[in-house]
Amino acid sequence: MRNRLTPITLGTMLVALYLFLFAPVIYLVYASFARDTVWPFPWHFTVAGYVDLAGARAYQQALWNSVVLASAAAFLAMALSAMGSIAVLKYRHRWRGAFAIIIVSPMFVAELLIGISTLIFNRKVLGLPGNMGSAIVANAVHGMAFGFLIMLAQLVRYDWRLDDAAQVFGAGPYRTFWYVTLPNIWPAMLGAFVLSFLLAFNNLEISFYNLGAIPTLPSLAWGSLRYGLKPELFALAALVNGVVFAAFAVIYALMRTGLVRFGYRGI
């Protein structure tokens, strides 16, 4: 009895699966180049949406704000999650389980609540107005929880006795970190950075409550929805997707050609 899938069945299933996953994205890119974004059939090619986007100062400002916010928050989150994961994995303290739960706990709080509570706390207790700084910090707390889990998963394989070896051979704590720990754990740190960056870049709720009038890409896009789906929104969404796709393509190419290993040594 043959119960193997024929190539045709398998192919059909694959196409269906990828369509299910990517049809919305493909449609979005397709529509962004159409004269009528609401019903782009038949298709009349235009780059008017992109031209509008390039001319819209508000979007450029929002993009800049988002990049600053996400970079700073991701850097903070990466540093915090690195410290947290090293603390939990290297120094096997009795309370490390409780410590780990505290670090990941922001993950279980709705982003909306993180946003509102940070705003209220800063305003009422610290007397600080909502601004870029508080949005960065609030996003970093959120990113730290995810970054911590990523680093934990990768660093369980790291042998902390290497740090012992470095110390015996004359490296103090800073040089041990710089020469031995960091070169081995940076791929995990990069992973935490990328994830925190994407979370903060795409975040609406946390940033919105803390930033007030300062626009980010998500808040601008969300605000403009009230005036209908404009062509420049399609262009913006298509561009963001394009950048992410290009970034992964570059990473893939680099790893395939062996130019960058991201810590993978074929062991």
Binding site: Q167, V168, I267
Partner: peptide
């Protein structure tokens, strides 16, 4: 004194060579 100020050599179990 901390280990890095003692000037001893050591060979570890599992070697512990720096993989990078």
């Amino acid at each position: 004194l901390p280990p890095y100020a003692r000037g001893v050599g050591m060979v570890f179990q599992d070697f512990l060579l720096f993989p990078h």
